[in-house]
Simulated scan of single mutants.
Amino acid sequence: MNDFTQAIQLAATLIGRFDPELRGIIALSLGVSLTASALAFIIGSPLGLALAIGRFPGRQALIVTANALLGLPPVVVGLGVYLLLSRSGPLGSLGILFTPAAMILAQAILGIPIVVALVHRMTVDLWATYGEALLVDGASHIRAAASLMNIGREGLVVAFLAAFGRAIAEVGAILIVGGNIRGYTRTMTTAIALETSKGELSLALALGIILIALSMTVSAFSHMFGRTLRH
């Protein structure tokens, strides 16, 4: 019990003085996850929109696939990206394995299905409500799509936040492709796993507290924008 109390006190001290190592890990985590979430959003939102308003062969199969990929195991994604970026892989010449770029790629792949699924679900309802009216008014499909995105901007924010929530909490994939290198690819989740395995609970607790606070903030914003969207 004394060890646990001491670990909590040390964790509070680390947070209170914003320890340099703690600060570096948090900055890297946020940088990687925000970049990955932005990439997932840029790629996933047009795909979700196309699946909602487009009519083309194989559309239903793509919708099913996008929803099935929501449960994609992170370690499998990590393994796939590792093989892709390894020296013998097709992108090995880039030399980005065990770098933040590889971690961003892995997190973006995990976030894309989330964005596609959420944007598709939102846009299907909006298209059913406003799509015909927009086309009758003379808008092209591209302009109609832009109008739908403007109407559903709160839903787009929810999709981005959901991708960010998945990215910031990820450990398996980025551990494989990032290597958990101190000061370079060590994020909050990988640091928590490492420090816990070493029995060094103070830094792990400090990072865990901050990670929970971030997750709660993301959930609160998602709930707020979700309620706005429903109303």
Rank of each mutant, 00 (worst) to 15 (best):
I192F: 09
I210H: 07
G199R: 01
Q9F: 14
M1V: 07
R166C: 00
G92T: 02
R230D: 06
P74G: 02
N2G: 13
G178K: 00
L207Q: 07
P113F: 05
I176Q: 08
H120C: 04
G44L: 03
Q6H: 14
L51N: 04
T13V: 15
F41D: 12
I174H: 08
A102Y: 12
I109Y: 14
I109A: 01
S93K: 10
R59G: 07
P100S: 03
G92I: 00
L30F: 08
A213F: 14
L10K: 13
L79P: 12
G89K: 01
T190E: 06
V64G: 12
S215A: 08
L211C: 03
D137N: 14
V158D: 11
N180P: 14
L72I: 00
I53P: 14
R182K: 15
L10D: 12
G24C: 02
E195V: 04
I15G: 07
L83T: 05
N150M: 08
T35D: 13
V81Q: 04
F56M: 03
S93H: 13
L110F: 00
G179A: 01
F221E: 09
G165P: 12
Q6G: 03
P100R: 09
L175T: 15
G179H: 03
F164M: 08
A206I: 04
A38C: 15
I63A: 00
A191N: 09
I53E: 10
G92C: 02
A108H: 09
M1W: 10
G48R: 03
W127S: 11
T187G: 01
W127E: 15
I109D: 09
T217G: 11
A12V: 11
I181D: 11
S37R: 02
L203Y: 04
R143K: 12
F164C: 02
A12H: 04
Y82V: 05
Y82F: 13
A12W: 14
M224R: 15
M103H: 07
F98V: 05
T65G: 11
G152T: 05
G44E: 13
R143N: 11
W127G: 05
L207S: 05
R227N: 13
A169S: 12
I63H: 05
M122C: 06
L85K: 05
D19I: 01
V32D: 10
K198W: 15
G95S: 05
Q107I: 02
G92F: 03
G54P: 10
A108R: 07
L49K: 02
I112E: 13
I168K: 01
V32W: 08
S140M: 00
T187A: 09
R143H: 15
L94C: 08
M188P: 08
G131T: 00
A50Y: 13
